[in-house]
Write a protein that binds this DNA or RNA. Structure first.
Lengths: 342, 342
DNA sequence: TTGAAAGCGCTAACAA
DNA sequence: TTGTTAGCGCTTTCAA
């Protein structure tokens, strides 16, 4: 129960003024001092077990060396890699991060942004951005650097680092097309998320380019990115008269649900119906028939976002790219086969 | 780019002293004031968009309303549920959390504890505890509340919230025994972690109680909790003269590796060799043959740890249970069958 | 019930 | 090169 050592304590011990101690301990100002003093102070600080009180220094410098990270849900395997990527570069630069889970709930988002603001974060990385940018405008108005990752906010000017959703859908679609599929359905994600919107749009425009004439009922709308919704939407798709031979899903969990529903109906994937996913979450290779999917670079997204944010923090007037798009990759496994002739 | 409103601003606006404003905004002191003043101040604060500067208040009160969370690796699916459980109860109580990843590296652990200490966290939840308690002693000596979760530190007095590792092993072992297995091997986890140690000890004592006479080579030691090590250890087990009919693995990922290696050798699970895991990570039900495992309550662990920590923060002299053990549950799937008669 | 004043620990002008 | 001084925004005695 020893109480923390302060600069004052070290000053008393070494016989110099606190400001001298402060300078000796600050790498940017130590060169103002004689090496002997610096040495003496540092040694004393070390021996006394000094630890800088960042609250106090933040109060003076207006920098907390902390950034805020908004994510929808840390238990969703999509996000931890982003967190790691972020922390890798932030930690290096001396920043810590406060992570909050919004559950994709608007009121939670507002409340949690406030939590971050109260704690004086130097910047925000938003992996939980909704399409409503009102809340983020508040942040921008404070002059606080912010970047969204994985998702973008409508047509706002907030910089974002995202996956190439369009290319991913194109890749999956062409893969199905080349396997011989013409009647391809799409299970879209929740339309309040930019990723879902982008993927649905890509699906529409690419199928058109391919000359596929799909009924509107070829698109099923999921309410959540989960297995249950994948299952429900697949049911919808299979119940109608128009019969698809393949389902391109907006993410892996929807695809897993799709495969489950296909099986439940006594059909099989890929023999009766081919399925593709998006994201390439862990363990997909172990789950039969092996989901063919689009691999995204989540950790890279985190790293790039951190670098962008750091740049914005260092120079508030820095010009940063409005959108950084990361390449995606088709991962072929067992869930796609030529359509059955029928 | 508006700069933050301070108490001073509100004081000027409402014509009262800053200390009055402070009191009006503090639920514990507002009753000293006339309701009219409170009302007037609060209204002004609201309209002006006041947001408390927690750095400043922390400096005075020595409370940051922030707790630190040490985890080995957020991308390991075992930990996010703990984080959620923690945050659920901490957020409720007005606390935010700083999460750091130690990668189970001793020097990172020290450095990151220091990061948390510099930021003046009010308490620490350590889900990355190693067996070396030296680093945590520093924390305790500061009088800073700390609790370990999932793991315990040797025979220290630091409170912990853990799963019932012993019971879990007993459950899995008896399940195998009842299926007819007598030659049961164990793939142990890294012996620097308390969970691994506890599970290995339980394996030893329970097999003894059951009267199984196992050679020491029935125990393979993994260096990491991952698939590769599971595979390597299984190779070791299968290469020797003593032939096991079942492998009890210290966690699910080791078990997944074990199954892979069994298959690679042209054998099959559970027909030739039965396998059990520990933790019940997501998607296990979708991976054939369906790993029989022990389900642990990670989110509950997080919640309980948070409640414990809060109690310790509120009352530094509070007596808290040294160990809180959560019940575990056997989840039967397809990876266990009677041994082949041979 | 409100105000005045001090100070948390630190940094940064300014002075010497 | 070092010391002096002021003050970041807040809370909390003490006094009125």
């Amino acid at each position: 129960m020893t109480k923390p050592i302060t600069l004052k304590d070290i000053a008393r011990e070494t016989g110099v003024h606190v400001s001298t101690v402060s300078r000796a301990l600050d790498n940017d100002s130590r060169h103002f001092l004689t090496p002997e003093v610096v040495e003496r102070v540092r040694k004393a600080a070390d021996e006394m077990g000094y630890r800088r009180n960042r609250m106090a220094s933040s109060l003076r410098t207006k920098k907390t060396m902390t950034i805020g990270l908004l994510i929808p849900d840390i238990t969703n395997t999509l996000f931890p890699p982003i967190v790691r990527g972020l922390e890798r570069v932030l930690e290096e630069a001396g920043y810590a991060s406060i992570i909050v889970n919004t559950d994709d709930l608007a009121d939670r988002e507002s409340r949690l942004i406030n939590v971050l603001l109260e704690r004086g974060v130097d910047g925000i990385v938003d992996a939980a951005a909704s399409q409503d940018e009102a809340r983020l405008k508040i942040v921008e108005k404070q002059g606080l650097p912010i970047v969204t990752v994985n998702r973008q906010v409508g047509n706002s000017s907030i910089p974002s680092v995202v996956n190439d959703d369009t290319e991913g859908v194109r890749l999956a679609l062409h893969h199905l097309y080349e396997a011989g599929h013409r009647k391809i359905a799409h299970i879209a994600g929740p339309q309040k998320l930019s990723t879902s919107i982008a993927r649905l749009e890509a699906f529409n425009s690419e199928t058109k380019k391919l000359g596929l004439d799909l009924p509107t009922s070829a698109m099923a709308m999921s309410a959540h990115f989960d297995e249950d919704e994948g299952q429900r939407c697949t049911g919808e798709l299979l119940d109608q008269d128009w019969k698809c031979t393949a389902i391109l899903c907006a993410n892996d969990r929807l695809a897993l649900g799709a495969i489950a529903e296909i099986r439940r109906r006594g059909l099989s994937c890929p023999e009766d119906i081919s399925v593709t996913g998006f994201n390439d979450i862990p363990f997909l290779d172990l789950i039969p028939p092996g989901l063919t999917t689009i691999r995204v670079q989540q950790e890279a997204i985190g790293r790039l976002a951190a670098e962008l944010l750091l740049k914005m923090i260092k120079d508030k007037t820095a010009t940063v790219p409005r959108t950084t798009i990361l390449p995606v990759q088709l991962i072929e496994r067992g869930s796609v086969a030529p359509p059955r002739i029928r």
